[in-house]
């Protein structure tokens, strides 16, 4: 019983760490304009809209976070191998990983922007000093919490994978969850704030991103508070639920029916989420209604 309670407790801590990690990950990627919305930052100057938005084109978020978290975990593993205290090792590993993230961020901004010279997009070198540091700060939170969570899985829950392998697994999952949940919110609601609410961006408006703020010019730093309204927390909840439910269903139900209990619990959870999704979808159709008069379905 005590062992079970300990396991559930660790799952809860891991879930909480994952929630923080997901929220920080999405905030970081939105401040730096990483992932899919980056294509619009890239497109705007080609359409004649010069801007002062950061452009952090380090592949997609999943591979990028795969690297940061693996690096943090691997360096922590190496430092623990020479008998460093685990807490110190994880902090140092994450700090070095964040340094690498910052270097990659600056080279990505410079590279993409310099390659747009044809469209008269200048390199605003002050952005590198102001924005990079802020993304690094958020990235540190994301990496540190993710690596700590992996450490708990190995050392407290006894997962067979070594720490760096768990870094790859959960780093890629973190990036996938964060980019899937957070990208539309930043891409549609922030970059195209001036477009109609409650509708997709018409393809004809592509590239016409918002470049000016309430006063002065939009800085990527403002994306931080915008993301924290919905995209960040939602990404956090997404990744937190993934980690917590995965651990919880295994620890709590694995003893039933020679391991099949955890499988059944997982199936039940999937069905519950499916029903919630269907309810959300139906609610949206009923409440928002169609955009145009519904024609008789012919096909």
């Amino acid at each position: 019983m005590e062992e079970l309670l300990f396991g559930i407790g660790i799952s809860a801590v891991a879930g909480a760490l994952a929630t923080v990690s997901g929220a920080a990950e999405d905030t970081e990627s939105d401040i730096g304009s990483q992932g899919d919305p980056n294509s619009q930052v890239q497109l705007a100057p080609q359409m004649g809209y010069i801007h002062r938005i950061y452009s952090k084109a380090i592949s997609g978020e999943p591979p990028a976070y795969g690297l940061w978290c693996t690096l943090g975990a691997g360096l922590a593993w190496a430092l623990m191998a020479i008998n460093y205290n685990p807490v110190l090792a994880i902090v140092l590993g994450s700090a070095i990983a964040v340094f690498v993230q910052g270097v990659y961020a600056t080279t990505a901004y410079l590279g993409r922007t310099a390659s747009l010279a044809k469209f008269e997009q200048p390199v605003y070198i002050d952005l590198i000093k102001s924005v990079t540091t802020v993304t690094m700060a958020h990235a540190f939170i994301a990496i540190f919490t993710c690596v700590s969570m992996c450490f708990l899985m190995v050392n407290a829950l006894g997962h067979p994978f070594p720490l760096p392998l768990l870094g790859i697994v959960w780093g890629i999952a973190l990036g996938a969850a964060g980019s899937a949940t957070g990208n539309p919110f930043y891409g549609k609601e922030r970059q195209y704030q001036s477009q109609k609410f409650g509708a997709g961006v018409p393809i004809s408006a592509s590239g016409n991103i918002v470049r000016y703020a309430e006063a002065g010019q939009r800085s990527s730093l403002d994306n931080g508070w915008f993301t924290s309204k919905m995209g960040g927390p939602a990404s956090g909840v997404c990744f937190g639920l993934i980690v917590f439910l995965e651990l919880w269903r295994t620890i709590f139900f694995e003893s039933f029916a020679a391991g099949w209990g955890a499988v059944v619990a997982g199936i039940v959870l999937i069905i519950i989420f499916m029903i919630i999704d269907r309810m959300v979808e139906k609610w949206a159709r009923k409440t928002y209604g169609p955009y145009t008069e519904e024609k008789e379905a012919t096909a």
């Binding site: 549609k188 609410f197 939602a234 997404c238 439910l245 959300v280």
Partner: peptide
């Protein structure tokens, strides 16, 4: 979970 959160963002944050 991921697909559910995607739809929640579309419906409740973007009204789509």
């Amino acid at each position: 979970i991921t697909c559910l959160m995607v739809n929640i963002i579309y419906v409740y944050a973007m009204g789509i």
